[in-house]
């Protein structure tokens, strides 16, 4: 009986090592990402749109996209 109890305690102690402390589990959880139209916290943001305004960001990016189209640039 004593050996059995000791064995159970030993197993429980071993298995406890496999658990993950809650603070580590929380740290490994996915964090939210902020959308690009919210702007960047540096001095390199282009001036032709308003950070936080999705429509203005989309319009600005679409315009910038056309910079890669030499057919439209040559017109």
């Amino acid at each position: 009986m004593k050996v059995k109890t000791l064995g159970l305690c030993f197993t429980a102690a071993l298995l406890a090592a496999c658990s993950e402390p809650p603070e580590i589990a929380a740290k490994a959880a996915k964090r939210p990402d902020v959308a690009p139209y919210m702007g960047a916290n540096n001095g390199f943001v282009t001036k032709n749109w308003t950070p936080g305004n999705q429509a203005s960001w989309t319009e600005s990016i679409d315009q910038r996209n056309q910079g890669q189209n030499e057919y439209s640039r040559l017109k």
Binding site: V34, P36, Y37, M38, G39, A40, N42, F44, V45, T46, N48, W49, W57, S60, I61, R64, N65, G67, Q68
Partner: peptide, 15 residues
Amino acid sequence: NRLAEGKLPLCAEMC
């Protein structure tokens, strides 16, 4: 993070 700066990836923009 060029998208958040209102830009596109540099590799494509400078090709």
